[in-house]
Amino acid sequence: MIELYTANTPNGVKIPIALEELGLDYQLIKLNLAAGEQKRPAFLALNPNGRIPVIVDLDGPAGQPISVFESGAILLYLAQKSPGLLPEDAFARWRAMEYLFLQVSAVGPMFGQAGWFLRSAAQPIAVAIERYCSEAVRLTGVLEARLSEHPWLAGAEYSLADISHFGWLRVADYAGVELSRFPAVQDWVARISARPAVQRAFARLQ
């Protein structure tokens, strides 16, 4: 059994989607981020950075419990625990890894900063908004180029790379990105949204 601590956010949706895709049993523990539950001592003991998602696998390596934080690390852990989200072909496998790390190093941080400056700054700073929004658009263009040539980011197979990006691209307007400008990405979002496992994950997050 896996305990999942998360919330319905672009990063938080990744792991329930992956667990549903893999058919793994899990207990969903929804955190109230507005109430600061992710900053309480019990949660900080699992993730000292105070961010969701976090998993606790009660049947971890050698049958011992293990906690894992950071969405990219969790996706890799789950992909190694149960097959289905990393291609067996070596070339496609490394494409999946490339796009996974593109998401955690660039897409997530840039989309997040763009959205924050667009909505939360008491005195919006035009240069910051331009910086982060233009980078969010540029990165969407990188994905558009890839998905114009391949159905999935790793190539022919759906993988953890798609799951990692999906949470942010499904709410691209948060970062000031007009998804209609990127038809391949828009189609990719629609195809992932239609997957039964994705729909089950969102139903549990409600």
Rank of each mutant, 00 (worst) to 15 (best):
P41V: 13
A184C: 05
R51G: 02
S67H: 14
A79D: 13
L118C: 02
S148Y: 07
L205F: 09
I29H: 15
P10R: 00
K81C: 11
A73P: 04
P65M: 13
I17V: 15
G60E: 06
S134L: 03
P124N: 01
R195G: 10
A156C: 07
V68W: 00
G72N: 00
N47S: 04
A62W: 11
G155A: 07
E20A: 04
R195L: 11
S120L: 14
A42Q: 15
A194V: 00
Y158E: 01
A42L: 13
L58R: 15
S105I: 05
G141R: 06
R119F: 13
Q186F: 08
G60A: 10
Q199S: 04
L78Y: 08
A194L: 05
S148W: 09
G12L: 03
D25E: 15
R200A: 14
Q64P: 10
A156M: 09
E3D: 15
E88S: 15
E178W: 05
E135L: 11
I74E: 08
A7V: 12
L33G: 02
D89C: 09
I74M: 11
V185L: 10
A114N: 01
A79Y: 06
G50N: 05
R95H: 12
A7D: 15
Q199W: 00
W188E: 05
I66D: 10
R138K: 03
P183Q: 13
S120Y: 14
G50Y: 05
E3Q: 15
N32W: 09
P65K: 12
S82G: 05
I17F: 12
